[in-house]
């Protein structure tokens, strides 16, 4: 285990060090101390290393991550794991707005609640939230899976393209062009796998599936109110 203490080392040194780890590195375990809400912690990583951040982070922790497994023991600020490509980001606490925004791959696990716009413009990332999510989540989501073990806020899946949304609790309201869909066996399989990978003790059968009604795919004046 190698340690970087943000109380004494600058952010630039933290990121430069973690970014310079190659795929075949021996130093696979890293610990970051005293994050104290700092922004852009462990961004742009591209190696299969494990990074544990002990505390709470500010904006964009784990941004554009590739390969790395990043674990935050506290809560995460806005835009955690934004545009993630691969790897894993796990947040023990809550996540602020825009969690997993535009993510293209990898797995984001939030053990607490996620705020508004969770999974906004998601493009292939898998997101598992054990608590609740806020309003406008998965807005314009294009691909990937968003799993919510608690409740979803207003306007879930507004203007959705092809992302799949699974919610166990209540949905305050669905956004434009988002509808409940039949949960078929292939969806239960996807869900079972995601819950297992996220370490969540829940049954796929307890969830409902939501997706795009595809009514906004080609312009129709009778749907103009939804724009």
């Amino acid at each position: 285990m190698q340690t970087i203490d943000l109380a004494t080392q600058p952010l630039r040194e933290l990121n430069a060090t973690l970014q310079s780890q190659a795929a075949q590195t021996n130093a696979t375990e890293w610990e970051v101390l005293n994050p104290r809400g700092a922004h852009a912690i462990a961004v742009g990583l591209d190696a299969p290393i494990d990074v544990t951040v002990r505390g709470s982070t500010g904006y964009y922790c784990g941004g554009m991550n590739k390969q790395a497994n990043i674990h935050v023991t506290g809560s995460a600020g806005p835009g955690v794991a934004e545009n993630m490509m691969s790897g894993t980001v796990v947040i023990d606490g809550d996540a602020s707005q825009y969690a997993g925004a535009t993510g293209r791959g990898g797995l984001l696990v939030i053990k607490g609640n996620a705020s508004s716009r969770c999974g906004i413009s998601m493009k292939g990332i898998d997101i598992v939230v054990q608590g609740n999510i806020g309003h406008m989540s998965a807005f314009m989501g294009q691909a990937g899976n968003l799993v919510v073990c608690g409740d979803a806020g207003d306007a879930l899946g507004d203007s959705l393209y092809e992302a799949r949304l699974f919610v166990r609790g209540s949905v305050k309201s669905l956004g434009a062009d988002c509808i409940e869909k039949e949960m078929r066996s292939e969806h239960l399989e996807i869900l079972r796998d995601l819950l297992a990978r996220a370490g969540v003790d829940a049954q796929p059968e307890e969830f409902r599936r939501y997706g795009s009604a595809r009514k906004l795919y080609n312009f129709d004046i009778d749907n103009a109110a939804a724009y």
Binding site: R36, G37, A38, S56, T57, G58, Y59, S75, G77, G93, D94, S96, Q97, S115, G134
Partner: peptide, 20 residues
């Protein structure tokens, strides 16, 4: 931002949330 709160007494065990 959360950064503003980190030096408050007992922050680690406080209820921390985002206003709706």
């Amino acid at each position: 931002e959360y950064r503003a709160l980190v030096n408050l007494p007992g922050i680690d065990s406080a209820r921390v949330w985002e206003p709706e």
